[in-house]
Amino acid sequence: MSNEGLKPEKLAVLIDADNTTAACAQDLLEEIAKYGIASVKRIYGDWSSPMLSGWRSILLKHALVPIQQFAYTKGKDATDMGLIIDAMDLLYSGHFDGFCLVSSDSDFTPLASRIRAAGRVVYGFGRAKTPEAFRQACDRFFYIENLGEVEKSKDEIGAASTTALADRPEAAKVTAKSRQMDAATKSLLNKSIKDATDEATGWAFVGKIGNVISETRPDFDSRTYGYAKLSGMLRDLRGLQFRTDEANRMYCRKIPYSDLIKLLDEAFNKFKSAKGWASLDVVGKYVKPRWDWQEYGFESFPELLGKVDHVEITNDGMRMLAPAAS
């Protein structure tokens, strides 16, 4: 990915038109622009086919270079071979830092692996049905649905007239349905935070967390879960403290609630009255030197207790509650 102050990466964008609809073009190229300059933009398919009328209507708008690939044999995809040959020629030219392969076809898995073996970055783009082998072969993989496009089924496309497809290239664009952030996803985020944490400071740079995730899950995208950015997911993960540095870079760290709960239990049992309550002020003074809540962004002891389960507080007292039976 291009960084501020560094020369943007030169990218070769190769699109399998037989496997991708024109509805995604604008969002696709805007996404690619986040990672570098699309120095080459080629799109492959049988341009004599009415199925590509949507793409034909926007080639000039997006400066896409169409590459004709005739279907010499029924049932065989000549587009794949033509794209692969061009990709290898571009790779051997040595002029490109990365490649954007736009297809949901697993046939491009060896190509992605070969490009990465040559030290070039590979960004893959495809539908949610894209086989895992191709997704994992890329450095990063983006679901087209997250870019605002959901592919029509072949039956729907076949039933539509050529004129209708040409006049309504955006007809297939709808908002993708977000997934829930399940236990496996939360576990992935927590492990990535741990792996990205600087042992010297205890903080993890959010950008590094994203890189750690991508190393094991190239197809991970916060937009799949309804979040515009990873930082939004992390905030909803709870139990984290955030800060930004002078360059507005975001960092986070785990709040050690397990240590706090042990300390609260110790303090409560030490100072509780016969009625089963302990003074907020007394417990707070005991906890503060041992667990400074202000270091974790809490203004006061009551504010901290409000974030801890199984604690009941009043204006001047607190007590520990037994966890609810599962």
Score class of each variant (00 low, 15 high):
S2N: 09
G119H: 03
A63C: 08
R243W: 14
T73Y: 11
F99V: 00
L165D: 05
N211A: 15
R238C: 11
K262Y: 10
W55D: 03
M250S: 14
I213F: 06
D292I: 02
L60F: 07
L6H: 06
P8R: 07
N3M: 02
R253A: 13
F108N: 01
A204C: 12
D105I: 02
T20F: 01
L91H: 08
F268T: 04
A63S: 14
R223L: 08
A23P: 01
S48I: 06
M81A: 13
Q136I: 04
E4L: 07
F108R: 00
R140G: 04
D195Q: 15
D46M: 00
G297K: 14
L6N: 08
D167Q: 14
N190I: 08
G75P: 09
A164L: 13
E145R: 01
I15R: 01
A71D: 14
E149L: 02
G148H: 02
L165V: 11
D86H: 08
L101T: 04
T224V: 10
W293R: 04
L147I: 05
P289G: 09
E132G: 06
L101A: 05
L234V: 08
G232P: 02
F141R: 00
T162S: 11
A63D: 13
S178Y: 03
F301Q: 06
K208A: 15
E151Q: 10
T244Q: 15
P169Q: 09
A325T: 15
A133G: 12
R243N: 11
T216W: 10
A23D: 12
P131K: 02
A78S: 15
